[in-house]
């Protein structure tokens, strides 16, 4: 019993004593790179091509949101993301701005899909005697 307790303690101390770089290496690759998180700001990119890419992404998102609005089915999240994208572009964080604009467009596409499917599905929910 005593021996096993000592073994457990040694294992614990060994793990806690690992250098920081080894612990970091054990983190998932995606979390390190920040590729899966919208809250992790990537490196600012001020290159002219990135600016053009952002404008393209933004225009595409705005056009898709407008299509959703024609169907009265815009999601407020798209609006919020477009605002955040604009703020990020002003701050010079163009990679992040592109990511946010793309997400806004993607949500607007889902909103349009929702409106299209609801054109008929709503009838199934109507109460009947």
């Amino acid at each position: 019993m005593k021996r096993s307790f000592v073994v457990v303690l040694i294992v614990l101390f060994t793990a806690c004593g690992q250098p920081a770089d080894i612990q970091q290496a054990q983190e998932p690759v995606g979390a390190q790179a920040g590729t899966l998180s919208t809250t992790t700001a990537p490196m600012a990119n001020t290159a002219p091509e990135a600016s053009a890419t952002y404008q393209e992404a933004r225009d595409s998102a705005v056009a898709t949101v407008s299509l959703a609005a024609e169907k009265n089915s815009t999601w407020s999240t798209s609006d919020a993301l477009l605002k955040q994208a604009e703020a990020a572009s002003i701050e010079g964080e163009l990679d992040r701005a592109i990511q946010l604009a793309d997400e806004a467009r993607w949500l607007a596409e889902l909103a349009i899909k929702q409106a299209e499917t609801e054109e008929t599905l709503w009838r199934d929910r109507v109460l009947r005697n």
């Binding site: 999601w75 949500l107 909103a111």
Partner: peptide
């Protein structure tokens, strides 16, 4: 009536 029973928004809720 259609508005009331149609799902909308990211949370996909209808009034109903």
């Amino acid at each position: 009536k259609q508005f009331y029973y149609s799902r909308r928004g990211q949370l996909n809720f209808a009034c109903s």
